[in-house]
Design a protein around this nucleic acid. Structure first.
Lengths: 197, 197
DNA sequence: GTCTATACCTGGATAGAC
DNA sequence: GTCTATCCAGGTATAGAC
């Protein structure tokens, strides 16, 4: 894993990065299966040969994208756990992070939260079994143990605490919500916190 | 629309219904794009010719499925609105309905809530703009007007009230939740209601 | 109305020049 | 490392017999 990155990264990153950017945009706009390698080629203005030089298949391109995004999300959650101690502050920071990410890089969050990866990355675990989601469940489980949240099944508590924001993000991405997402932070966070205390 | 149904329905419904059932199963198991008409043909044990006799294309097959499911969901919400008057009872009944449907016909709910229809039904509105979802937002909006829910943006309130259940259903379908969904009804409903009052 | 055989085409991936 | 040209599998949809 880390080794693969080492052998790939010393190469010229321009085309690789450009391809990733373009693919993310097209995958989220039209979906993985509606996006052909030719579409990516055209939009990125590079050749098919170059793309296949950096990625051995369309699937591995999607996988690189996915791992990159999951990794960034994981890092963000880890930082939040270091910076904040109480369950309240941690969950609040995660909520804010999600809203800001959805506003600033909607494609990233759409690919992470709304795409059905299993359909084009059959070897991948479901997203909710990935590391960052585990960390979030840990935050909640710890909160229940410490008595900072009320006694609930941890999965139910997590769904309740973050289901609202995630749903709100879905609605925004589908065009059902006006205005900017972070504007709703106070409202949605207040609801979420009230639901588990 | 109604006319098309009239011309189609007098025919032998066995193959049509069998095709729809099989398609729903395969679409939810493997995804629309990973399911070929040949796959449906094999699993339903009918011929390609027969399928194309009832559905003019793969897309129209998916559309029939989708309209059927949206229609059933809409009818369920309408009945709930007739049977119950208060916002509390209405939202509670919708929550219970969702959990029971997810338990009894997981494929139906998965196709309705988790599939990305726009990718294979490009002319369809986003699911959250469909009639049953509008009805649910109406329930919430009315609740706010009547003072049965606290003053919130209606979309935020809806996300908060139903985001938890929807998230829980996602988690269950992804295998992240043990046990049967309706068992968690009390917990999740209590959280949801507390979040908006 | 149901079937088989097949036409047609898109799209992923490769070969090989530069 | 980057490109163009091309191969080939697989999938949708149709034609036409029964």
């Amino acid at each position: 894993m880390r080794q693969r990155q080492l052998t790939e990264e010393p190469q010229n990153q321009d085309i690789r990065a450009l391809t990733l950017d373009t693919a993310l945009r097209l995958f989220t706009e039209k979906g993985f299966f509606n996006t052909s390698m030719q579409d990516i080629r055209k939009d990125a203005d590079v050749s098919i040969g170059s793309i296949y030089h950096y990625f051995k298949s369309k699937e591995s391109l999607a996988q690189a994208l996915y791992h990159d995004l999951v990794g960034r999300f994981e890092k963000a959650v880890e930082e939040i756990m270091l910076r904040h101690g109480s369950t309240h502050d941690r969950a609040r920071a995660v909520t804010l992070f999600l809203l800001e990410m959805a506003e600033n890089s909607p494609q990233g969050i759409q690919f992470l939260f709304c795409a059905k990866h299993r359909e084009f990355l059959p070897c991948e675990k479901p997203i909710c079994a990935s590391r960052p989601f585990e960390l979030i469940r840990d935050i909640v489980a710890t909160g229940i143990e410490r008595g900072e949240l009320c006694e609930l099944n941890p999965v139910v508590a997590t769904a309740s605490l973050f289901g609202g924001v995630i749903r709100l993000i879905h609605l925004k991405l589908d065009g059902a919500l006006e205005g900017s997402l972070p504007d709703y932070f106070d409202q949605i966070w207040q609801c979420a916190w009230a639901s588990v205390t």
